[in-house]
Design a protein around this nucleic acid. Structure first.
Length: 476
RNA sequence: CGGGGUGUAGCGCAGCCUGGUUAGCGCGCCUGCCUUGGGAGCAGGAGGCCCCGAGUUCGAAUCUCGGCACCCCGACCA
């Protein structure tokens, strides 16, 4: 079993060590691509399941659109094509022949979806259209990192069509709040909800909302986005509807997505130098039970007790695994399951059995306690809740203590250049001032927070008036 | 695309400078014994186009030239 590089020594290597050693993913034969292994995919399945439920609750339905997009579609929306063409994979041959029209492997599906919406939307009675799809997409990035940025990744993309600007706006905001809820309640990752500056928004959107999380190296990670696309795609694909007064109108659109990048966020938010830490709500296994024994008689007695506990806990809906393999010693298993991030571990050996107790260890704190066997099953639910909320509160406290109000350029520079955290600073709104900071410090405006009050001040760069503080940070 | 690094057993590496037995070591794997409360021990065993291609040489993992791949760090991006 390999040792994990400590965060202090090399944060980037620590992350890679966690991903590889916890068997979440592995490098694939193709540059920039990865294989998501069962341990990693199980987390994605949990995310998928929870998010899908939340989408259904908000009235969305799933559909599936093709992987291949005709080149002409990509070129219909000017900003969109400009934003994406450099990172697109293009198919030029099929069936042994050169294609008449090249096919783009989808980097996102707005164009192909809106080409279909044109067929399906005629009247205001057809609206709103609230579709989502779970799919893979390809973006030919120059530099890749497991989960955080790979050439191909899995995501979901919602694509909705509405009668009015206001309706689309409500939808875009609603979905960013769904993402916030998912990040905070399921991933236990606190986020800042905000709006992107023009230079950071999606190619083809009127504006973009996002959730930004802080990683343990104090850099920002965009964990989800929701775009108000206005009538841009409706105009490009001539999607009109007859409104309630009989007039033809262009449809308003939104799109929103989260990807397997969330797994990267999860890892970097909670894990430690022992390995992965997974919040109970997304943990593929909630509890692992390690029987400890020498003789066959001991093995039988201890395993009987272990399986008894397992059945009590599983019947409450928790996922439990008994590891009774005898080729590994208990100490080895302790380390193994800590590496894998299982939230709770129960150790039970002959001494415990004699005393009618077992030992229970928490992954989040490392704390070990002794519990009567009769009480174990009734304690699990509460403990898992405690771990879930504890992880969130710990991450939230950490984030809040690393956001600083910087009122001068020098302060901002110190914070972002030295990666001390986020700098909450006044900005006049001009792209020039934004670019100056980026050029000098590599930090960008992560977002203009939605939930923070207006406050008058002066731009840290040009001293012109500002109405609100925005967040600056280096980002993944 | 720049900078750096690596390619030898499943994984991690040594050997290369100074060419020459049967290419080694640790971990893992298989068999057996012994062990099991924080990564045990002993014995035996399996496993190699030494990244690819040319060259130099009696002889190349090792020297020369050319290629390829991957990783890390920077510029583009979710």
């Amino acid at each position: 079993m390999a040792k994990i590089t400590t965060r202090e020594k090399d944060y980037s290597q620590w992350y890679i060590d966690i991903v590889l050693n916890a068997k979440l993913a592995d490098y694939a034969p193709v540059r920039g691509c990865m294989v998501i292994r069962p341990n990693g995919y199980a987390i994605w399945e949990k995310m998928h399941q929870a998010l899908d439920g939340m989408f259904k609750e908000t009235g969305h339905v799933n559909a599936y659109f093709p992987l291949f997009i005709p080149e002409s579609f990509m070129k219909k929306e000017a900003e969109h094509v400009e934003g994406f063409s450099p990172e697109c994979a293009v198919v030029t041959h099929g069936g042994g022949k050169e294609l008449e029209e090249k096919l783009y492997v989808r980097p996102t599906s707005e164009t192909i979806i809106w080409s279909m919406y044109k067929k399906w939307i005629q009247s205001y009675r057809d609206l709103p259209l609230l579709y989502n799809q779970w799919a893979n997409v390809v973006r030919w990035e120059m530099r890749t990192r497991l989960f955080l940025r790979t050439t191909e990744f899995l995501w979901q993309e919602g694509h909705t069509a509405h009668e009015t600007y206001d309706e689309a706006e409500v939808e875009a905001l609603k979905m960013i709040r769904v993402y916030q809820k998912f990040a905070e309640e399921y991933m236990a990752v606190p986020v800042i909800v905000g709006k992107k500056s023009d230079s950071e928004k999606f190619a083809g959107a009127l504006h973009t909302y996002c959730i930004e999380a802080m990683m343990q190296d104090n850099k920002a990670l965009q964990a989800g986005t929701s775009h108000h696309l206005g009538q841009n795609f409706a105009k490009a694909f001539e999607v009109t509807y007859q409104d309630r007064t009989g007039q033809q109108q262009f449809v308003y659109a939104t799109s929103w997505g989260v990807s397997t990048r969330l797994i990267g966020a999860l890892i970097m938010a909670h894990s430690d130098d022992q390995g992965l830490v997974v919040p109970p709500k997304l943990a593929p296994t909630h509890v692992v039970i390690i029987p400890i024994f020498k003789s066959d008689e001991e093995k039988k007695a201890v395993c009987d007790a272990a399986y008894q506990i397992k059945s009590e806990i599983s019947s409450q809906g928790f996922r439990v695994n008994v590891d009774d393999r005898d080729q590994f010693k208990p100490g080895w298993k302790f380390n193994e399951y800590e590496l894998l991030g299982v939230p709770l571990r129960i150790e039970i050996g002959p001494r415990d059995l004699a005393a009618g107790v077992c030992t229970l260890a928490r992954r989040d704190s490392g704390e070990k306690t002794t519990l009567p066997l009769t009480e174990v099953s009734s304690r699990i639910s509460g403990l898992l809740d405690d771990i879930q909320s504890g992880l969130f509160l710990r991450a939230k406290a950490r984030m809040e203590s690393h956001i600083f109000n910087a009122d001068t350029y020098a302060e901002l520079e110190d914070i972002v250049k030295n990666e001390k955290g986020f700098s909450r600073s006044h900005w006049c709104g001009s792209p020039e001032c934004e670019a100056k900071i980026k050029d000098a410090t590599k930090a960008t405006i992560r977002c203009i927070p939605l939930d923070e009050p207006d406050e008058s001040g002066e731009c840290v760069v040009c001293k012109k008036p500002s109405v609100k503080r925005v967040l600056f940070s280096k980002a993944y």
